[in-house]
Design a protein around this nucleic acid. Structure first.
Lengths: 131, 131
DNA sequence: GAATTTGTTCTATACAATATAGAACAAATT
DNA sequence: AATTTGTTCTATATTGTATAGAACAAATTC
């Protein structure tokens, strides 16, 4: 899986990495049960510091996406049933609400927002089916 | 309109303010053409620094939501037709993609994501109709 | 069993971002 | 004429981000 980091973007490196790993899993480039590269190996590939990758991995663990096994490695979690009162669900809802509110204020109509969401989901699923 | 700031949250104060103003407009608490309070007045109400409010206002202007008239004030912009190649559209798409990818990875199904989006839109529109 | 790799923990440094404070300015409003 | 407005400037303190290196113990590999 290809990861591209822009060192001087306004988004922190560890956040760029976290987002791209999540999108990579959504696209099916990596599957539940798969191991992520070691923090040293990935840091070497990306040309960033070990601690930066480590911070991203712990961010992913906090969001319930991977499981870090001490002294061993990081494994992609199997999807669990997310209840509406979990903090994971609240986090997703908050992110969606921010984006949707901004879209509506800018004049994007309700139907267009829903169509955009559908097309994003289709885009994410597109390549996942090939695997 | 009620704005609540948490000074010690991990989200910067100016970002909290920007999001809540956007949501407030989406809910119809403020309308296009309305003026925002002066940076000094709002800073006083919220108990934060003038420059923090100013930074939020300029963030809103950069996103096309308000227009700052020098030496006068800030006015909420009228919604414009957003084309798919505008940077506003790209920004919305990126935010939605991040949230949706995370939702799918956590095991929220496609239909549930679409239902969640619909319910968020309804929630935002709920009070706007009363006005 | 020995060597290597693993995440973890610690100190240290450099730089940028955030937030506050105060002052001064010129234009707009009252 | 007085006040309010956003703007601009200096200044400071704190936090966040990123890098660097070292050391450790557990896990894995050979």
């Amino acid at each position: 899986m290809i990861i591209h980091i822009e060192p001087h973007a306004d988004t922190p490196i560890y956040t760029q990495l976290t987002k791209q790993i999540i999108e990579g899993i959504a696209r099916g480039y990596m599957r539940p049960g798969d191991s992520l590269p070691s923090v040293r190996a990935l840091a070497g590939d990306l040309g960033v510091n070990m601690h930066t990758v480590n911070k991203s991995y712990h961010e992913l663990e906090k969001r319930g996406i991977i499981r870090i096994i001490p002294k061993s490695g990081a494994v992609i979690q199997a999807p669990v049933v997310v209840t509406q009162d979990s903090h994971h669900y609240e986090h997703i809802t908050d992110e969606l609400k921010s984006a949707i509110a901004e879209a509506l204020v800018l004049g994007i109509q309700t139907e267009q927002v829903e169509e955009l969401v559908t097309s994003i989901i289709q885009d994410l699923h597109a390549e996942a089916e090939k695997k």
